[in-house]
Amino acid sequence: MMIERLQQVFPNEVLSTYTTAVGEAVAVLRKDKLHDVLAYLNQNSDCLCEALLDLCGVDYLSQLKPGEARFEVVYQLYSYQHNHRLRLRVKIPAEDMTLPSATDLWVGANWFEREAFDMFGFQFAGHPHLKRILMFEGFEGHPLRKDYPIEKRQKIPFPQEIP
């Protein structure tokens, strides 16, 4: 199983593992050596996760316990070769939102990471073009953060301001 191997190779990185009710393997990680973990899962012949199916952010503001990281970045990995899947939940503290970009391992991570940056403000170090993708340039704040005010209105962009 991929998840046991991950625990053996990166014992300090894997905080916990579990399997969901429908049998999906999940590993909770700290972010320090995230790029090494992702590269291992991508390249090791027993893991060989060629596909990054999705990448998204989560804000746990309302369930925050003391000492826990507020944000999470979730990676959904899949291997065509072995037909196995793995979900990684990477803890991101609000004080330091930087994490390594996965664009060198999966080209498809590019737009996922831009979306996560747009909505939550994660700083993906090494991303070739980390700009907003859904909201317009000049949008203030990150709308999927739970402390973004619902009734906040942005300045409406006008044609001459479009680059």
Partner: peptide
């Protein structure tokens, strides 16, 4: 939405 707004304004103009 906000991204449509400048386009609509341009149409009107």
């Amino acid at each position: 939405n906000y991204k449509q707004a400048p386009i609509l304004k341009k149409f009107y103009d």
